[in-house]
Design a protein around this nucleic acid. Structure first.
Length: 357
DNA sequence: CCAATTTGACCGAT
DNA sequence: ATCGGTCAAATTGG
């Protein structure tokens, strides 16, 4: 109990400090007009840091009467969380409600944080550009959508089972402009895929290339999506959330990805489920997939964080909590790179970084 | 042979 | 009842 508390504190401070440091660097970068890549990287890091920090706060808060809540929230008066009262009783209610639902049945993952990016394809081939979102995705479905000209495909993280990473994305080609793809991401990656600086992931391309190759029509050039990296902007995230309506979202990356080793997620929280990899037993998934033979990619280091936070359930719990709090707004169009000043961070913290994790 | 994709069925939400 | 999302058996590809 106390352990986790101090861990939170520790991580929190660490995250904030880290974010601050990167912000400073970013400032310099800006004045130096350096490469956008560096800038993006920094932005990403910053966002991730704040993200994590906020999440900790939120999580703690949502635990309500549990140990940490009071301390944390009290300790950070006027923190983003309270900026617009987003963590008021509404939020809490919502969270609790969700939580209850979850306990009731296996309401699985409900409303994960969700955000949509619109990607415009510049070249028909779209095969070049080693720009990828840095993850390997595995297609698990395709569906014709009512009113949509093109089918929508569904992808999940390749490491779902191996690293318990539940991020998914869906790709939909725009009706009018076939060169525009809308990619909706759900959930954040927890897998260890730090493609942070050098986004030249090796594998993901292959799979996508294959698709694009010369299968026809209904095979959308997925690679394009990943690869372009050219014009890509966050269009909208989290759409309708009638009940909750507070401008928060954690669309991106966070833990697994950017984490520098400084925050050593080695806590003792996963009382029971210690070995994540070995013993996680998500209530929902069926162990039937052939992915059991993965390579041993340092399982911990990332996943741990999630595992740690939820102590009692599987990682979906955490996600739920996050998303619940997270909710979203109707207008958080954030132009990924620029207009990002501390003030804004306070209000619309984390929309963009979805990608490079 | 293994792993990824395809595709119809299933299931939950509206 | 319908639609969107996921599952999983069959298929394809390397």
């Amino acid at each position: 109990m106390e352990k986790s508390w101090s861990w939170e504190q520790k991580t929190l401070v660490s995250e904030l400090v880290q974010g601050m440091e990167m912000a400073k660097q970013l400032k310099v970068q800006f004045s130096a007009k350096s490469s956008t890549e560096t800038t993006e990287t920094l932005l990403h890091g910053i966002l991730a840091s704040y993200e994590t920090a906020l999440m900790i706060l939120r999580w703690s808060g949502s635990m309500g009467q549990t140990q940490t809540a009071a301390g944390v929230t009290a300790g950070v008066p006027g923190s983003p969380i309270s900026v617009d009262g987003s963590f008021g009783s509404n939020e809490v209610d919502k969270v609790l409600k969700d939580h209850r639902d979850l306990n009731d049945v296996s309401k699985k993952r409900k409303i994960m944080p969700r955000w949509t990016d619109q990607v415009r394809v510049t070249s028909e081939t779209g095969l070049e550009g080693p720009h990828d979102d840095g993850y390997s995705w595995r297609k698990y479905g395709q569906k014709d959508i009512l009113g949509a000209k093109y089918p929508r495909s569904y992808y999940r993280c390749t490491f779902r089972l191996t690293q318990n990473c539940w991020a998914t994305k869906q790709v939909q080609r725009s009706d009018d402009d076939p060169k525009v793809f809308e990619i909706t991401y759900r959930g954040r990656h927890v897998c260890s895929h730090a493609t942070n600086l050098v986004p030249a992931p090796s594998s993901p391309e292959k799979q996508e290339q294959k698709q694009n190759n010369d299968h026809q029509q209904d095979q959308r050039p997925l690679d394009i999506l990943g690869n372009i990296g050219s014009s890509l902007r966050v269009v909208a995230e989290e759409l309708e959330n009638k009940e909750m309506s507070h401008p928060f979202s954690f669309p991106s990356t966070s833990f697994g990805c950017t984490r520098s080793a400084n925050s050593n997620f080695s806590l003792s929280t996963h009382d029971n489920n210690t070995s994540f990899l070995g013993s996680f037993s998500p209530p929902f998934l069926s162990p039937a997939t052939p992915e059991s033979n993965f390579h041993s990619v340092s399982p911990f280091q990332n996943s741990n964080f999630t595992g740690a936070l939820n102590g009692h359930r599987s990682e979906s719990d955490l996600t739920e909590i996050i998303s619940a709090n997270t909710s979203a707004t109707s207008s958080p169009i954030l132009d990924m790179d620029f207009s990002l000043d501390p003030a804004e961070i306070g209000h619309f913290p984390f929309n963009s970084s979805a990608f490079f994790c």
